[in-house]
Write a protein that binds this DNA or RNA. Structure first.
Length: 240
DNA sequence: AACCAGGACGTGA
DNA sequence: TCACGTCATGGT
């Protein structure tokens, strides 16, 4: 299976997705499915500073099993909790100070994203981890050592916050690959990642675009059962 | 009313 | 290792 062909097909179908959204960036809003703002199609210069880098990281925690508009509300709520100074961006110190000084307000801010008790702890864990990185790029294993960061979140952080080439296997991608007959339902994350990774080449922009396109396509054809119904876009890749 | 959302973790077998 | 329950709000 040549996944570059699948990538080209999706890109032709949906064009550039402009991931990862940055809430302070008044970008365009491509044809999406729940997106609100912060997207930047065909602009791969993000993150432009450590604030945006850290915003992507905490967004990747907040979006676990949660739709993006809910995450965006949470991020905006958090930014508005800075009662002393004007908000100048997300940082680990900002998160840790906020968590220490006003735990209840913090949890209330991220309530829209769900699992607010768990994510409250996860955000503190990743904040301490980010400080210890001291500017270095974390390995996948480094990220997985943080409680609250699993396979998909680790790959999302590396791909979108650090521009490292990683295949992301989210629920949509697995459904698509199962539907096409490329992987089995029981195949675990790392197996699917290696199957795709062995037949996909490109630079970090391609990896970022590919995952965003998979999500866009998944939202259209793989949210309701039976998954893949009316998926004519990728039908040519179906095995048997 | 049931199901899903850009998952991860703890537990018991 | 892996199947299953739990975490929680919001939209369809």
């Amino acid at each position: 299976m040549n996944f570059n062909l699948m990538y080209e097909k999706l890109l032709k179908e949906y064009s550039y997705q402009g991931w990862w959204p940055i809430i302070s960036y008044e970008g365009s809003n491509p044809t999406k499915t729940g997106s609100i703002k912060g997207y930047h199609p065909s602009d791969y210069s993000f993150p432009r500073d450590s604030y945006e880098q850290f915003e992507i990281i905490i967004g990747s925690i907040l979006t676990q099993n949660t739709s993006w508009p809910s995450v965006e509300k949470s991020l905006i709520n958090l930014s508005n909790l800075d009662l002393f100074d004007d908000f100048d961006g997300f940082s680990p110190e900002f998160i840790l100070n906020l968590a220490n000084d006003s735990e209840d307000d913090f949890k209330e801010a991220i309530r829209p994203a769900g699992y607010f008790n768990q994510k409250f702890n996860y955000l503190q864990n990743i904040s301490k981890f980010y400080i210890e990185l001291n500017g270095k790029t974390p390995s996948r294993a480094d990220l997985l050592s943080v409680k609250g960061v699993g396979n998909e979140t680790a790959d999302s952080i590396r791909l979108y916050a650090y521009g490292e080439c990683e295949i992301i296997v989210d629920a949509y991608f697995k459904r698509i690959l199962v539907y096409l007959g490329i992987v089995n339902e029981k195949d675990n994350y790392n197996k699917i990642k290696s199957i795709v990774g062995s037949d996909f080449t490109g630079d970090f922009k391609d990896y970022q675009e590919f995952h965003a396109l998979i999500v866009e396509h998944g939202k259209r054809y793989y949210t309701k059962r039976p998954y893949g119904l009316n998926d004519k876009v990728l039908n040519e890749f179906k095995i048997i």
